[in-house]
């Protein structure tokens, strides 16, 4: 991450208009923030994470695809027909034994929607956004992710034009699984980087 920088890309006009409506209506007590989030939350798991899981499972089984994905994420997900609605760039970052990647953004709009859908409520919360930068290991532990002391944690700060997708480590003991079965192990949280991929027992009937 290239140190601190101002948010160089202005927020889109539509986002500003919605934020204005939302914040004024909340201040006037006409709508409740929690009630809005609850409604939006119902859609967050639709479509999105399944797309990302397909991309990750392909990367696990196809070394050449993985190379393409890490080199040019936007072009690689386009092979699946996924693309950013506004042409934002997708960068895939790979977790290894030495490096663990985790993604954050200060804005609710900075999230790789084409592959992950709408962001979960906690991703948009002020505590996550500020704390994961300051004390990433502690935040990861709260998600149940304990990393070896020697693993370097990289926090990727999304912008309006650059989105990140974490490629989690392929779990041990999954050599015999098909690409389709592997997609079931790739959780949304593992692609944000706050969790690891699920173990092989998580597949249907496994």
């Amino acid at each position: 991450m290239a140190g601190n920088h101002k948010h160089s890309d202005p927020l889109p006009e539509t986002v500003l208009r919605v934020k204005s409506l939302e914040s004024l209506l909340i201040e006037k007590g006409l709508v409740e923030a929690a009630a809005l989030d609850a409604l939006i939350d119902r859609y967050e798991n639709k479509v999105g994470p399944k797309n990302g899981a397909k991309v990750v499972a392909r990367a696990w089984v196809d070394e050449e695809f993985k190379e393409r994905l890490l080199k040019d994420g936007s072009a690689a997900i386009a092979e699946f027909g996924f693309s950013g609605a506004q042409g934002e760039e997708l960068i895939a970052v790979e977790n290894t034994d030495k490096i663990h990647n985790v993604v954050v953004c200060t804005l609710c709009s900075c999230y790789p929607w084409p592959v992950l859908g709408l962001p979960p409520v906690w991703y948009k919360s002020a505590p996550y956004r500020s704390r994961v930068v300051r004390e990433p290991r502690k935040v990861l532990e709260e998600f149940g992710t304990k990393l070896p002391a020697g693993t370097e944690v990289r926090v990727w700060d999304s912008t309006a034009e650059t989105r990140y997708l974490v490629v989690p480590k392929r779990p041990e003991g999954t050599e015999g699984l098909s690409e389709d079965e592997l997609t079931q192990l790739v959780s949304r949280d593992s692609m944000i980087g706050v969790s690891e991929a699920l173990g092989p027992t998580a597949t249907k009937g496994g």
Binding site: H5, K6, H7, L11, S130
Partner: peptide, 14 residues
């Protein structure tokens, strides 16, 4: 909001 976004360092909530 436009002003706040433009003057917020990335990594900080707007």
């Amino acid at each position: 909001w436009r002003h706040a976004a433009a003057h917020t360092e990335h990594g900080q909530p707007i």
